[in-house]
Write a protein that binds this DNA or RNA. Structure first.
Length: 176
DNA sequence: GTTGAGCGTT
């Protein structure tokens, strides 16, 4: 079958290997340093990014882990997928996106309707094509995403170790 | 300490 690898659902189910991992199903209380602690175990990290809700400031329950070496990210993906962290079974996959979306400017970026002419316009119509979204545009159906990946390996060396619920109880700034 | 599906500009 001449199957296109650019099919949206396929991209989601089978992301290409990348140094960027997406981690999903996180506890709201899992922080970037928690993730760094866990993932640095597999190699040098180039960055860790928890995605927060812009309004509430709370974690959206997923994050991105950047490795420096592809071998390490592969290893981490294999081993950390299905791991329990802060009481949640996390899913780890190669990220299909590599970086945040470019914010929309909120202003007109086209050229003027009159006298636009040749030289001056800084119009950038092709902006959107720069978005690194891995070639999918629709979110059609992927509720069957990858349960087969859920058993890639045994849930890891972290059996009881990272259930520290004692963390957030430290600071309770008393008000007078 | 909402318990959740989820691929992104703190």
């Amino acid at each position: 079958e001449a199957y296109s690898h650019s099919d949206a659902a396929d991209v989601r189910a089978n992301p290409d290997p990348s140094t960027c991992l997406g981690v999903f199903g996180l506890s709201l209380y899992t922080t970037e340093r928690d993730l760094r602690e866990v993932f640095s175990r597999y190699g040098h990290l180039a960055g860790v990014k928890v995605v927060y809700d812009q309004r509430t400031g709370r974690s959206r329950g997923f994050a991105f882990i950047y490795f420096e070496r592809l071998e390490d990210s592969k290893e981490a993906m294999e081993r950390a997928n299905g791991m329990e962290l802060d009481g949640r079974r996390i899913r780890v996959d190669f990220s299909i996106t590599k970086r945040p979306h470019t914010p929309t400017p909120g202003i007109y970026m086209g050229r003027p309707t009159h006298n636009g002419g040749g030289g001056g316009g800084s119009s950038r119509r092709g902006r959107d094509s720069y978005y690194d979204r891995g070639g999918y545009d629709r979110y059609d159906r992927y509720d069957e995403y990858d349960y087969r990946y859920s058993r890639r390996r045994s849930p890891s060396p972290y059996d009881g170790r990272y259930r520290s619920r004692s963390r957030s109880r430290s600071y309770s700034p008393r008000r007078y």
